[in-house]
Nucleic acid binder design. Structure first.
Length: 210
DNA sequence: GAGAAGATCTCCT
DNA sequence: GGAGATCTTCTCA
């Protein structure tokens, strides 16, 4: 029962709360080659009209339409001509919100992830998925998965992690955004070596014990 | 239709 | 720490 995908109700809530509570959950990717699993260790929250850094700031477009749909869908987009970024949509239909998954701790399917990233087995583990572009590359996540329902056992879903130890959550300004970067909407597991950047632009705005 | 910007990563210095 | 790679999306004329 505990390894069921997270429910729709989990996502259709406040985006910041969802971004924080996604930490420690397991991201599961199923492909023809095999299953890959990783623990989410870093997220960023993006909201709607009150968030200039969000794709949804200017309203609905063909690209960001998924953000305005149900919570619990995958929003995948292409950036810089090289990389894909994976988000989980939040909030109820009509209200835009998404949580960018910035980094995961690889748990299962390590060889497959290394192969997808063209890395050797000698590569540092934390180098495989410690960034939005890296984790999508490692898990073969592309825009083909845009709109995928994360609440059902399909090619991509997120589930609880029953063996997860208690951890502390750090917050900071979001990385790579030029507007509204002062908002501490980046969440990460303190002390986890798979977090993408340990020295963000804004120092810890706070800590949360989970 | 053209031009600019971009939620990144890797390599080089 | 900085620059370059390269393509989608959006804005503006």
């Amino acid at each position: 029962m505990k390894d069921r995908p997270l429910s729709r109700a989990f996502y259709e809530r406040n985006t910041l709360l969802t971004a924080c509570e996604l930490l420690g959950k397991l991201l599961v990717r199923r492909t023809k080659e095999g299953i890959m699993t990783g623990r989410i260790v870093e997220t960023e929250a993006y909201r709607s009209k009150d968030d200039p850094a969000s794709h949804a700031y200017r309203g609905s477009t063909p690209r960001n339409r998924v953000m305005f749909d149900h919570g619990g869908l995958a929003y995948v987009y292409y950036v810089y001509g090289f990389h894909y970024c994976l988000n989980a949509t939040t909030e109820v239909p009509g209200t835009a919100g998404a949580v960018l998954i910035r980094a995961i701790e690889p748990l299962r399917g390590l060889e497959l992830m290394l192969r997808n990233r063209s890395l050797s087995s000698a590569s540092p583990l934390e180098n495989i998925t410690n960034g939005p572009g890296k984790l999508t590359s490692a898990m073969s996540i592309t825009t083909e998965l845009n709109g995928t329902d994360l609440t059902s056992r399909g090619a991509l879903f997120i589930r609880t992690s029953p063996l997860m130890k208690p951890f502390r959550v750090g917050t900071s300004g979001r990385i790579g955004v030029k507007s509204a970067y002062r908002r501490p909407w980046r969440f990460f597991i303190i002390g986890n070596r798979f977090v993408s950047r340990t020295k963000p632009r804004l120092k810890f705005a706070g800590q949360i014990r989970v």
